[in-house]
Design a protein around this nucleic acid. Structure first.
Lengths: 207, 207
DNA sequence: TATATTCTGTGAATAAATTCACCAATTCTT
DNA sequence: AAGAATTGGTGAATTTATTCACAGAATATA
């Protein structure tokens, strides 16, 4: 069956929240509470979950641990995945040891930058390389995800490199949309546009 | 008239692309090209623009400069807006001087952190303060936007502080959803969930 | 034990978003 | 000058997403 991107995104959020609840030792959670936590309605949560055939219990809700396990299995979210970061400016280096990635099974196993000077200056436990070795290292280390943190000008170029290197997914933090073949999943996260949206949304709301 | 969030977001992207084209000295741009650049279809671009009543020219497209000016006016995107960053860990400090913000009229005028040690160590041109002074400074400097870069545990607390301080919008980089009154526009940007989505999407795509 | 309550699951209804189809206008080509 | 090609604008059609409504099941309550 075909799940929409919206549904997949919400399910991912649900997974994140289940992980939190599990840590807290909570046993059951209702569609209503999940909805509040991920910012949608209980109807939508139930519909999403029903598409997966997940079992909920009358008057109790969903069983946190087993449901989390099921989602993890279905979407392979428990499997640890290797990622690399390209572009080691401020944002890139910040991401290099972004603790939340590690906690969630995403392991940053390499960083790349085109400036050799910068590579030498960086103090981190993660191996850093010149961009010229991107394909070699990506393949040698079975890196599945590429994170783009280079300036707009070189974003597409890096996306192409990552594509050639055979990554499965790309998270792009540069402020331009990148084009990659459809088989590669990619997501653009443009901070500036996010602020713009907030400002524009605010203006419209108060008209 | 009521514009949907999707439309507003696309229009913001269009605005960003128009700025780029203007810099390059391009005079006209078609709905088709805009669509490619922002990742949608030409129909959608035309529909969005027609909702604004923007004028396009047969066989030429939209006039870059004047259209950008019009959008800037309508959504007040040219007005410079002041923002602050709360949480000066790696991500927060990276955002402190994220060049793209400045270029786009968002001015980071203060940083906050609860650790006084950290505040003293930070080397930046932007003024940094203890979180205890958040409301005071926000009001004194007419800060309109708050950027949350604190750990999950304190995100909601900071969102509440920002709300009390009277910001108009919040961009939340912590991995939990924050709850704020409807009058405040907010957007959650959860990196980990983004990676999760990419991974899950990839798995589903290949089933 | 009977009744009320509170959950999920899901088909149907509604609403929203996108895509299509095609007219009108302008430019290009021959 | 005539015809072909390209482009925007927009109502209609279609598709997609969300919400509703309510049956069915388990639990709580009296």
């Amino acid at each position: 069956m075909e799940l929409s991107d919206n549904t997949i995104e919400r399910i991912c959020k649900v997974f994140g929240h289940l992980a939190l609840l599990e840590k807290k030792g909570v046993e059951f959670v209702s569609s209503k509470e999940l909805a509040e936590q991920i910012g949608t309605t209980e109807y939508t949560v139930r519909k999403d979950i029903s598409l997966l055939g997940g079992p909920g219990y009358t008057r109790k809700g969903y069983e946190v641990s087993s449901f989390k396990r099921e989602l993890g299995q279905k979407f392979q979210l428990t499997k640890s995945r290797k990622a690399c970061i390209v572009g080691l400016g401020r944002l890139g280096t910040a991401l290099l040891d972004y603790e939340n990635f590690q906690e969630d099974g995403f392991e940053i196993v390499a960083g790349f930058d085109c400036s050799v000077n910068k590579i030498e200056r960086i103090r981190t436990n993660i191996d850093v390389f010149p961009v010229s070795r991107l394909q070699e290292i990506t393949q040698a280390r079975s890196i599945e995800l590429g994170i783009i943190a280079v300036p707009a000008e070189s974003a597409q170029e890096i996306a192409d490199e990552l594509t050639k290197a055979g990554v499965k997914g790309i998270l792009n933090f540069s402020p331009v949309k990148v084009n990659v073949p459809a088989r590669i999943v990619h997501l653009d996260m443009d901070f500036t546009n996010a602020l713009r949206f907030i400002a524009a949304r605010f203006v419209m709301q108060n008209k």
